[in-house]
Simulated scan of single mutants.
Amino acid sequence: MKRNIVIATLTAAALATGGTVAAFAAGDDEPTTTQRQTDTSAHEAADHDDDSADDQDDDASEDRTALPDGSLTAAEAIAAALKHTPGTALSVDLDDDGADAWKVSVVKGDGTEYDVRIAPDSGKVLGAQRDTGDDNDADDRAELAAVKGAKTDAREAALAAAHQGTVTEVGLDDDNGAVFWTADTVKDGKHSEWTVALDSGKVTQDRDDD
């Protein structure tokens, strides 16, 4: 009975002042209105923190081209691949656009081509698989001939492009018969594309790069 009187008194006081009140009685097991609001706010804040952490994890997984400190550079990956499989390196890139392995394409003296995978953390050769594709057309042969007579090889092209950022890929391209190296770099989260001259090693930003 006293409890009802206390609640009624508090309610009347709140209505008279235009405010609200959270009624409770000593010894009640039920949480008060204020407690329920606090608990809800705490859960919402925790959910928000979890969502933010998930977003950060997603961002990190999407940008897998950012190599951890101490990882092998593109030039070092090429050197490791050629030590294992001597020949002419035609390209190097992060396998599947990630940091799982460097993949170096090497053409041996007999014309056979191999994809050599290098661990980016240790430089260990993970495997060398022969490329049995039949796409060795006239353009491919012309590019190979140009590279064999060039002053700048794939490793030197990677070193030259490294002044522009972390090199994630080096390959060959041609424009109206002129063959040159291409290189992709990342710096401060920005990706850029470059061309590297076979004769001089001069680095120029790709005019088609946005």
Score class of each variant (00 low, 15 high):
Phe24Glu: 13
Thr168Arg: 10
Lys190Cys: 03
Thr204Val: 02
Lys108Asp: 11
Ser105Phe: 13
Glu193Asp: 13
Thr166Lys: 09
Val6Phe: 13
Val21Asp: 08
Ile118Tyr: 08
Asp54Gln: 15
Asp59Thr: 03
Leu67Lys: 05
Ala150Asp: 05
Ala53Gly: 10
Asp97Cys: 03
Ala128Thr: 00
Val21Phe: 04
Ser52His: 10
Thr166Ile: 10
Thr85Asn: 02
Asp188Phe: 02
Asp137Ile: 02
Thr65Val: 14
Leu90Phe: 09
Asp206Gly: 00
Gly165Ser: 03
Gly201Asn: 03
Gly123Val: 03
Val196Arg: 07
Ser192Arg: 11
Val170His: 03
Ala89Gly: 00
Glu76Ala: 00
Glu156His: 13
Gly171Lys: 05
Ala53Asn: 13
Gly70Ser: 00
Ala75Pro: 01
Ala101Cys: 01
Ala45Cys: 06
Asp208Ile: 06
Thr17Asn: 15
Val21Thr: 03
Met1Val: 05
Gly18Trp: 05
Val104Ser: 01
Gln129Trp: 14
Val167Ser: 02
Ala22Tyr: 15
Val179Asn: 07
Thr40Phe: 15
Ala23Leu: 15
Gly171Thr: 05
Leu72Met: 09
Val116Arg: 06
Gly18Arg: 01
Asp208Cys: 04
Ser122Asp: 04
Leu72Thr: 09
Thr34Ala: 14
Lys151Ser: 13
Glu113Asn: 10
Gly109Ser: 14
Ala183Pro: 05
Glu143Asn: 08
Val104Thr: 04
Ala79Met: 05
Gln129Thr: 11
Ala178Tyr: 09
Gln37Leu: 14
Arg64Cys: 12
Asp58Val: 12
Leu90Lys: 06
Ala183Cys: 02
Trp194Gln: 04
Ser52Ala: 12
Arg207Trp: 12
Glu143Pro: 07
His191Trp: 10
Val203Thr: 06
Phe180Val: 03
Ala42Asp: 12
Ala22Trp: 15
Gln37Val: 11
Leu82His: 00
Asp137Gly: 02
Lys187Ala: 11
Asp58Pro: 10
Ser200Val: 02
Gly171Pro: 00
Lys124Ser: 11
Ala22Val: 10
Thr182Val: 04
Lys124Asp: 15
Ala16Gly: 06
Ala75Thr: 01
His163Met: 12
Gly109Gln: 10
Glu62Leu: 15
Ala23Lys: 15
Val92Ala: 04
Phe24Lys: 12
Gly98Thr: 07
Lys124Ile: 06
Ala154Arg: 02
Asp110Ala: 01
Gly27His: 08
Thr73Met: 04
Ile78Tyr: 13
Thr65Asp: 13
Arg155Cys: 07
